[in-house]
Amino acid sequence: MKMEALLIDIQRGSLNDGPGIRTTFFLKGCPLRCSWCHNPESQKAAPQLSFHRERCTLCGRCREICPARVHRMEPDRASHQVDFEDCLKCGACAAVCPTNAMKVIGRACTPEEAVEIAVKDREFYEQSGGGVTLSGGEPLTQPDFSAAFLSLCQDEMMHTCMETSGYAGKAAVEKVLPYVDLFYFDWKVSTEELAGEYLGVPLAPILENLKLLCRAGKEVVLRCPIIPGVNDREAHFRKILSLLEEFPGIQEAQLLPYHDFGTGKSRNIGRQPSVFPVPSREEKEEWEAWFSQSGAAGAKRVRLAG
């Protein structure tokens, strides 16, 4: 059987998904349902329609061509509603839309095809200490593809990084383990209660997998989105410090202040976004100050990023 992954996007020349200049492959499908998700289109493990309302000129072509009649317009064409649930993802509307307001997100890609794209920028990786990053979505939901692709990357002597929420079965983690040079591992909340409320999954397996990686001696960077009102609290910050203490193998913990760029994308796929307050510069400085004043040894490895 042909091994294929469902990709949302490939970003060449990326500077935010690991060290140096990288090519990042975003896989589609994630078991988590983080309320603040900034890539909401990555959650569903199947193709889906995205509708960019600002671009719509209400021309009505999509309505004419749609076999499932998901595009509804008022008789006077004053507004355009999409019944996302009924969409067949056939792409017919996207093909006729004159302003590209519609697109079907999710395209199939084999490990070989992905590597072909990755090697194009090898010189940039070499010059900058960069490489290839597998992100998502959650790449551990597609462990066969992930392992195959990253193994090919290593054969090509390219540095590999995986961005993961850490929520997966042990087998999946073990499968990719040998082929990942660096894990960007999310640490979002520190209690089961908050995990249930905001992530929609339990925390325990995530912690287990973090331990597994650290014990295996892998390079790990903790990625900690800080969401005002949710986890900008001492208890969470203390847990980050204690993880750094427990696992000296964690290179650093990066604090990623919440931003609301994902809310527009939520609306595009027919979902109501949860909105959190965007932290001010003062708040971010307070977080930093808290860590530096904590006196903990691990505080030196905490860095404000993003």
């Binding site: 020349g13 500077l15 140096g20 200049i21 010189e123 940039f124 010059q127 900058s128 200490g129 960069g130």
Partner: peptide, 21 residues
């Protein structure tokens, strides 16, 4: 401006590949 930040600024790497190529 972020392209020029850090110890090994990405702009430098982009330019060296550009010029070498």
């Amino acid at each position: 401006p972020r392209m020029f930040r850090g110890e090994n600024p990405p702009a430098r790497a982009f330019l060296s590949v550009f010029f070498a190529g």
